[in-house]
Design a protein around this nucleic acid. Sequence first.
DNA 1: ACCTTGACCACAA
DNA 2: CTTGTGGCCAAGG
Length: 111
Amino acid sequence: MDELVARVLAVVDKIPPGRVLSYGDVAALASAPTPRDVGQVLLRHGEGVPWWRVLRADGTPPEHLRERQLALLRAEGTPMAPYGAAVDLVHARWEAAPGDADPRQPSLFDD
DNA sequence: ACCTTGACCACAA
DNA sequence: CTTGTGGCCAAGG
């Protein structure tokens, strides 16, 4: 297993349920050259890790995974944007800090 | 070595 | 909203 592959998978594997990361976030945390490489790694070796918790920078999944990925995210209570076509990155993005915050922000403007 | 492909990103028009 | 442009880089033919 390549070093890069191992690092990317390690990062993805640590994303808690209900939280997400963008390809760019993973690239930064795993010291991957570019976000594209994260996609390549997940495409080839993503079977064992929670790949559905990695999204594009705007919170939408890639087209070919749209249905499956959104369903998985919904199922674990990930904060979604209105109309459910994308994740609410502001609330769902995982900050890889010690003692991460709750997945659900107690929105003061609750629906 | 060259070309193409791809689960990307940011910015501009 | 939609293109296009430039940047990025590993893999495979």
